[in-house]
Write a protein that binds this DNA or RNA. Structure first.
Lengths: 199, 199
DNA sequence: AAAATACTTGACTGATCAGTCTACATCGGC
DNA sequence: GCCGATGTAGACTGATCAGTCAAGTATTTT
């Protein structure tokens, strides 16, 4: 066995996988250990509880995705195009498996009244994501592309719609909703209709 | 004890309460029994499993709300006003406690990969709710109030946004999002902006 | 080679889980 | 007054749960 173990990562990966496949509440420590190839003792060597592990797993997942978000929402990209690229990216990821947004949403709605630590983490990560939306909206407003006197509120509203669509798409196992979301986003942002006509 | 017991209702009520306060997965049969003042035997006299109870509870809740939905979405009401009234109604209910939409959403995202029976029930009830949206959208389109060549898709998109906002409002414990949703709904529907000015 | 560090093992505890079972109570109908 | 139907009571089973712990094994440091 190596001096520095990869078990911590294996545990957080396993946890996120299982919570995505099932749910936070129904994912047991035993199951996480089994999938990670760990024994109980190892789990509690690294983490004090399932809650603490979840926090670590979510933060790790965020860090993995941050660079990508930075690129997609780069100020060098025209503001409305940032959303375009982002929702394209989401749709692509969603088509073939898990992504940060979705396990976070299901975990979020599940623990919102239960686990304060996990809840705070989810909110913290969401706030960071909303920041990307917000600055893109502010830029779009400044360029006169949209009318958004309150970028923060607009960002939050769009984020909520986006998450709802993500959740619905998952529950009904229908990517169509996600495919159409780009247009919905433009509507919510208040962009003048560009009829993506059939020819 | 009366000939006909109210225990069935007490059990479904207790179940929905607990699932709203916590979640589907973490709500145990024992806890439901305790809250309903029932013993294990009574529970399994009425229901074969937690899953079956949940289905019954959701259907019962829907039936309780159906008349209200019919009134709010009555064809006698101008189509866009139906949404206005509905989201007002939702906001009011949400401000002081539970409502059908929300426990259904959290249960839905939780069991989407687990319990097929509950999942099917959630989808069935959602489909019914979407029908209200859909016909209002079709009417609005017919009256030239909005441009919606595909009312079903529009209804589903709006429904997803609505649910996302509901979920977000709950998680962040912020009714503001819900208050603003009427405008977002109009945007998604494609209604020309009516600036609800500050005077 | 000894000691310290970093990690692993798996048995164990006590609580809680879903679900079963038999015995019992209360009622309307006769 | 008794019978069948509708419901209730609660002990019990075996599985699974989160979390503990003492003992062990590599690997690096000294």
């Amino acid at each position: 066995m190596p001096r520095v173990s990869d078990m911590k990562k294996r545990l957080t990966d396993a946890a996120l996988d299982l919570m995505w496949e099932n749910s936070y509440g129904t994912t047991s420590v035993d199951a996480i250990c089994e999938r990670a190839g760990a024994k109980k003792g190892s789990f509690y060597y690294f983490f004090k509880s399932k809650s603490e592990l979840t926090v670590a797993a979510l933060e790790a997942e965020w860090n993995k995705n941050k660079a990508n978000m930075d690129a997609l929402f780069s100020p060098t990209v025209p503001p409305l195009e940032r959303f375009d690229r982002y929702f394209d990216h989401v749709q692509l990821q969603e088509a073939c498996g898990s992504i940060l947004g979705c396990p976070m949403l299901s975990i979020g709605s599940e623990v919102s009244t239960q686990d304060p630590g996990v809840r705070a983490t989810v909110e913290r990560i969401w706030d960071r994501k909303i920041k990307y939306f917000e600055s893109a909206i502010r830029d779009a407003h400044a360029q006169g592309l949209i009318e958004a006197p309150d970028p923060e509120a607009k960002a939050r509203a769009l984020f909520a719609c986006y998450h709802g669509t993500l959740a619905q798409a998952r529950i009904e196992n229908d990517v169509g909703l996600l495919r159409d979301f780009k247009q919905v986003a433009m509507d919510v942002l208040g962009v003048k209709h560009v009829q993506a006509a059939s020819s």
